[in-house]
Amino acid sequence: MNTSIFKSIDQFFFKAENNINLAVFRIGIALAAMIILIAQYPDLLEIYGQYGYLRADIVELPLLSFQPRLSWMTDFLASYGFSEFLSLKVLFGAYLSFLLLLGIGVLPSLTALICLFFQISFMNSGQHYIYGVDYFVLAGLFYCIVFPVGQQLSVQFFNKNRKKESWVFYTRVLQIHVCLVYFISGFDKALGYDWWNGEAIWTTMMGLNFRSVDVSFLAEYPFIPKIIGWSVLLVEIGYPFFIFWKKTRYAWLTMTILMHVGIGLFLGLYYFASVMIIFNIAAFGGEWLKGSFFKKKPKFEESLIPG
């Protein structure tokens, strides 16, 4: 009995599997982090500057002495005569460069560790300005340190000792993380009234911060927001149950991706939506990815295997 339980656990976590999904995850996270960083560039001084909209000394007030922050590096650069704006540009460029290296797979664990340090520093120094996407990028970078994300689709691709397989454990961690994210999110929503009666969709889309299209006509058709609200609850609460069941996996994955496409388009949260789609595809889209990368182009794949 005990032996069979251990065997099942061993099979569930430590079966060898093609890890193309981890490589796609690495590229996706690096690319998304780069785009998010570039999108902030016009407001670099306003967000992170010593004399920005919220002064750095006020923003950094709650930080403990050991928590990394940009002022450590800007102060250091200032001793070499760098202006604050130039220092921020240098840090911005350095972070972008390491993300690029991570994306192309140069020493991925090390570059991910450096990127994680930059990400935490940017988040701490702009802690009043962060939102969900920053945490998911941070989590993604953390996974890039721990997981074997550099074995495929990287500059080490032609390495003779490359392994295309690793324990499924790493994918399982991603899967469990994503399942918890959706279940908790759906569970929290179900506690209130607004997601059940559609008012949540209405309030959010009519609000000031996320209004990207005029949806005032929805007031005449309250069943539409109600159906959307119920669908969100179903997708999120049902996620851990239906995504692991092979028969419903791809239907659920598709619905979840569509939900994020909707969030991106209608609430303007493009980056958040993109990062969540990357997490979903890496966690549960492994079969899709294997089909895309290997089955359709066997000759190309074979030609890349040395010897």
């Binding site: 994680l116 935490i120 969900g132 945490y135 998911f136 990028v137 941070l138 989590a139 993604g140 970078l141 953390f142 918890l180 994210v181 959706y182 908790i184 999110s185 929290d188 929503k189 179900a190 506690l191 209130g192 009234y193 607004d194 997601w195 008012e199 949540a200 309030t203 959010t204 609000g207 000031l208 911060n209 996320f210």
Partner: peptide, 21 residues
């Protein structure tokens, strides 16, 4: 959690707040 990007996942939960500006 702060080092690994773990955060509360109750996005827009349980009811979305009014916009604040």
């Amino acid at each position: 959690a702060s080092l690994t990007g773990i955060t509360g996942y109750g996005f827009f939960s349980p009811d979305p707040p009014y916009s604040y500006t």
